[in-house]
């Protein structure tokens, strides 16, 4: 608890609130889109990674992704997903965080972000299989679903890392992120 300084909490709250603002339309769009065209839904599923990637890459402290997504979830209560948004968001945040936890927060290289993103989406695709009846789709549609899901995940993680880099250059995390971390 000692590492959970108010300053760090508020930084997470700020990223979380901004993520929440961004995800409210995403939740709305995904609800309409997932109904009409699951493929298009796969193309935007990566957007959920933006917030936790930015939080972890900028703050570089344990729990940043989970906290940020918990707070974003609290804000997303106002979306069609209701409080289950908290669960959705927390899952994404935790999935990303696990990779850094098992490497004991020593590795901050981009590949770890990508690996965790891909692993989570693989898991997600399997659970979405049943939910969206994907196994009944044409092979082309199934392949498209996976390619889009993977592509959007990698793309949004990349965007998140770019944004984090620019934020670090703008000096916003000074005093919160550990100084020793090589950027």
């Amino acid at each position: 608890m000692k590492t959970l300084t108010t300053r760090y909490l508020m930084a997470c709250a700020a990223i979380g609130a901004a993520t929440g603002v961004l995800l409210i339309p995403a939740f709305f769009v995904s609800f309409t889109i997932s109904a009409a065209a699951p493929l298009a839904y796969a193309a935007m599923a990566g957007v959920w990674f933006l917030g936790p990637v930015v939080a972890l890459a900028v703050l570089r402290r344990p729990g940043a992704a989970v906290l940020t997504m918990l707070l974003a979830g609290i804000i997303n209560i106002a979306s069609p997903a209701g409080p289950s948004a908290i669960v959705t968001n927390l899952m994404v945040g935790a999935a990303l965080e696990v990779g850094f936890l098992v490497t004991r927060y020593r590795i901050w290289r981009p590949w770890l972000f990508y690996v965790m993103g891909v692993l989570f989406q693989a898991y997600y695709a399997i659970s979405a299989y049943a939910y969206f009846n994907i196994d009944d789709m044409t092979v082309a549609a199934q392949a498209g679903f996976f390619v889009l899901l993977l592509g959007s995940t990698l793309a949004f993680i990349k965007i998140g890392l770019v944004i984090a880099g620019r934020l670090a250059a703008a000096g916003v995390a000074r005093g919160i992120a550990p100084v020793s971390a090589a950027r």
């Binding site: 108010t6 508020m10 700020a14 934020l167 916003v172 919160i176």
Partner: peptide
């Protein structure tokens, strides 16, 4: 939108920082 993200988040984090000082 990713162009908006940087000023939005930077402003957000600065605001959060000031709020945290006031809270403490």
């Amino acid at each position: 939108y990713s162009g908006y993200a940087v000023p939005l988040l930077a402003g957000a984090m600065r605001h959060g920082d000031r709020v945290s000082l006031a809270m403490e």
